[in-house]
């Protein structure tokens, strides 16, 4: 564990807590993409298959349980509890256009042609594009609530911090995972235009409004 990875995990934790607070306080899921949350649930389920079989640390297990638990709770809030406020018309990204290519790529490009490794690779590739339905929804509605902007900033920062973690681990431990790094770079790049809007607008107290 290193400071970059710890900050990354805390940023990821903060993003999920911000999202849950937004939904619980406003009792609304307006502006939140249910499809992205379903993709995140798929990512965590595919990635944490070893949750009950290999114990790494209390921290590792607690975080995995928290991430899996909260993402399914988020889906429950979107599609059941606060269903009336879910904007399905704007959450129209065709996720099959993500899942099929990502699934195919996981079969072709992986570290080892073994079931667990391919499923893990699938979760890494899927996570890098899982935010697209959410960003697509914001571009369709033309604006994002400030709290949603904070959620996205924390979520985007988490993988950017993981990139720093991988740089550190390369020099400190000689650890290098090309698949995770490339997917992490793609994932962080997808947030760049949002980061720009966040820093130039939200930091000055304005709302984010994209040219619809």
């Amino acid at each position: 564990m290193n400071i970059f990875r710890l900050c990354g995990d805390m940023s990821h934790l903060a993003a999920i807590i911000i999202l849950l607070l937004k939904m619980w306080k406003t009792r609304s899921v307006a502006g939140i993409s249910g499809k992205s949350q379903i993709l995140f649930a798929t990512v965590f389920t595919a990635r944490y298959l070893d949750l009950f079989t290999s114990f790494i640390s209390i921290y590792n297990t607690c975080m995995k349980v928290f991430f899996i638990g909260t993402v399914y709770f988020t889906i429950y809030l979107i599609y059941m509890k606060f269903k009336a406020t879910y904007d399905s018309n704007h959450d129209s990204f065709r996720v099959e256009f993500l899942i099929v290519p990502v699934g195919g790529l996981a079969f072709l490009v992986n570290h080892e042609f073994a079931p667990l490794e391919i499923i893990w690779t699938f979760s890494i590739y899927l996570e890098s594009v899982a935010i697209l339905p959410q960003l697509f929804m914001i571009s369709k509605t033309g604006e994002a609530e400030t709290i949603t902007s904070h959620y996205l900033f924390a979520l985007g920062s988490y993988r950017a911090l993981y990139l720093c973690n991988w740089i550190y681990r390369y020099y400190a431990e000689g650890f290098f995972d090309l698949i995770a790094v490339v997917a992490g770079v793609v994932q962080t790049i997808l947030y760049c235009d949002f980061f720009y809007l966040y820093i130039t607008k939200v930091m000055k107290g304005k709302k984010i409004s994209l040219p619809a």
Binding site: R5, D9, L49, D50, S54, I56, L116, Y162
Partner: peptide, 10 residues
Amino acid sequence: DIAEWVKDEL
């Protein structure tokens, strides 16, 4: 099998 398949990052 799954036991020695370890990914230590979240």
